[in-house]
């Protein structure tokens, strides 16, 4: 059932983002082409075009991340606490499946958007791939990495910590909206208040944890422990969201 929910959520994501992702990539390609034409005689006009394109590109990227945030909030608020909730909550699934599906989709949106941004940066400047692949440093670096598998583990753990932080952020957003939903009036205002409250709580929690435990970022255990420390309040938030959806749902 979770997979079916994901299919539906990912389709909604694709509908919202295919255009903006495509636009960002297309713009960066244009930028790259113009850049490669720079030494040509129409140098000055090339610069003008380039500056326009790069401005539009940076606006697009900024807009993309604003839209990502709006998308994450709207998909939860409209999809589970608004009119679409009439559909989602009468499907034969459990609330945790609904929440998890939205969470996974939100993470995917962020990750793909970050990936698109990197891709945009690469495309912006035309690279001579042939040259890069034959740089001696690259092969030395690869060889060195492979001889130190530790490094890859660190990288994976670092990703895990970043991912945990994202999960925590989204969970706080979800819980704020769910708390706002508990009120009959001024739900948005209460949601914002809840968000501020939760934010303060999480800050208190993190300073407290930092006081009692010393996490050494250099060690595997330290990285894993910090991921766990971040995931713990996230799990609490998500459990609270599920409880509210199960017991206190009140679609007007």
């Amino acid at each position: 059932m979770l997979l079916k929910l994901l299919k539906y959520d990912f389709r909604a994501m694709w509908k919202s983002f295919s255009l903006i992702w495509g636009a960002a990539m297309a713009l960066s390609l244009v930028h790259g082409v113009v850049y490669s034409l720079r030494p040509m005689p129409f140098y000055s006009s090339g610069v003008t075009v380039m500056s326009i394109v790069s401005t539009v590109l940076s606006i697009t990227l900024t807009a993309m991340f604003v839209i990502v945030l709006v998308f994450i909030i709207r998909r939860f608020e409209k999809g589970l606490l608004g009119d679409e909730g009439y559909l989602m909550h009468t499907l034969p699934v459990r609330p945790w499946q609904l929440v998890l599906s939205k969470l996974i989709c939100a993470l995917a949106v962020i990750i793909i958007s970050v990936a698109v941004s990197f891709l945009v940066l690469i495309l912006m400047i035309p690279v001579d791939w042939y040259e890069i692949l034959y740089l001696p440093y690259l092969w030395d670096f690869l060889r060195w990495t492979l001889s130190h598998p530790d490094l890859l583990a660190y990288l994976a753990e670092l990703c895990l910590v970043v991912l945990s932080c994202l999960v925590l952020g989204i969970s706080i957003l979800y819980l704020s909206m769910a708390i706002g939903h508990l009120f009959h009036r001024r739900r948005t205002l209460m949601g914002v208040a809840a968000f501020i409250g939760l934010y303060i709580l999480i800050n208190i929690y993190s300073t407290w944890v930092a006081d009692i435990a010393i996490f050494r970022m250099e060690s595997h255990a330290g990285l894993l422990a910090s991921a766990a420390v971040v995931l713990l309040p996230a799990a609490v938030c998500l459990a609270a969201v599920c409880w509210i959806l199960e017991h206190r749902l009140d679609l007007e």
Partner: peptide
């Protein structure tokens, strides 16, 4: 009331629940 009953209940709400897209 739970997933098992939701699987056998067909519900017509008094409002629209469609996503625009």
């Amino acid at each position: 009331i739970g997933p098992a009953t939701k699987a056998v209940v067909s519900y017509l709400p008094d409002r629209m629940y469609f996503a625009d897209w």
